[in-house]
Design a protein around this nucleic acid. Sequence first.
DNA 1: TGTACATCAGTGAACGCGCGTTCACTGATGTAC
DNA 2: TGTACATCAGTGAACGCGCGTTCACTGATGTAC
Lengths: 220, 220
Amino acid sequence: MTSTAKFAAGQISGMSKRGYHHGNLRQALVDAALILIEQKGPTGFTLAEAAKTAGVTPAAVYRHFGGREELIAEGAQQGYDIFADLMEYAYRDGKPSALAAFEATGRAYLAFARKYPGHYQAMFESGLSLNAYPDLNLAATRAQGVLTRAADSLSQHIPADKRPPSAMFSAHIWALSHGVVELFARGNPGAKGQFPPEELLESGIGIYLRGLGLIPPDDH
Amino acid sequence: MTSTAKFAAGQISGMSKRGYHHGNLRQALVDAALILIEQKGPTGFTLAEAAKTAGVTPAAVYRHFGGREELIAEGAQQGYDIFADLMEYAYRDGKPSALAAFEATGRAYLAFARKYPGHYQAMFESGLSLNAYPDLNLAATRAQGVLTRAADSLSQHIPADKRPPSAMFSAHIWALSHGVVELFARGNPGAKGQFPPEELLESGIGIYLRGLGLIPPDDH
DNA sequence: TGTACATCAGTGAACGCGCGTTCACTGATGTAC
DNA sequence: TGTACATCAGTGAACGCGCGTTCACTGATGTAC
């Protein structure tokens, strides 16, 4: 059994501390950080807390990370990876209709924010500089690429002269999704909670796509 | 000269400390907090820092506020007041066309986020519970009311059977605006900066309104 | 199979630091006479 | 106009606390023989 295989096994089962050595402390620390971020926000937790949550001395953290920010960056990167996979899967899953596929992608966005709030905040609310973390930048770029490609293939159905750049198209959808998450899917001020976020996002995307001529005016 | 009038004068001129008494420490602390929030986020500053920025001992803060959170809440409340005024003004200013007025409101949203980043973050990114601060709740409700009324009067132009609830309408616009601010008007991951936020928001709102039938398909 | 050894992940004690909060105080300001 | 006094905003010293970071160490694990 290689050391890698052992780590992977530990990662999956969430193995607990067994004696003096932890087993897979690195991932346990990331997980702890993500839980704390979920509870108190990206700037609301301390390195010492993360160590304690993982059942370990603060000093142990330095075996794996340079400090608190690096821990958040790792969480964010894992988030982007999950996110990109999810979006890609949702898009492919929605075939054969490009439109249905696109709408599935929107729903997947919201589902991701719901299911992985810690990752989501590490990704979008931590204020990390992408320049400082090349790997994180790469993961973020890949995730954005998925969205842009989805928008791109959908906009083939729009007459070329009325077609917005697909990067703009996907930016609109991304912004709308993010805004719905931030304002209406959390305990935030704007959230007077009149509509469920899913309904809000779906109807918003519907109206937007109609505006692009992708849904006939009378449809729905 | 009443004490109130003196305070108001101090507030306007940003009067500096003059001897043992400050003049208008309460507002100076709020201003300091807003600057710190702008620089380091709502959870990234300490009460002691705010006191220092205002040129005062940490203990002095307790003459005016119960603690750090109360300070943020006051900043958020002032933000909602400015915000509501700005939106209301932008909407009225845009007459006679209801459409133009609505679009002006969208631009005003972005302008507010740009000009008052500290307030903006205190309002939307601080995670304050509105229930804990009734006055804040009131100010937030008023601000939301302005947006909803704008959406309401604009949707009069839509046939009743195709008209979405105006609360949903305004929620869409709010979410889109907020998403653009968060993702593209800051140093955030999503911000690959291909388009200026203003253009992104304006085009997004345009497509959305076309989807509602408020702009003819061929227009623009 | 057993033993000796190298590796290195995590320990725990230590440090200096800035925080939040309290308290008796001080001195600037406004007012009564 | 001047003086005595009340008010109360801000001081500064003090406290206990948890933080980040370092360091020599310890002991669990894997491996060579």
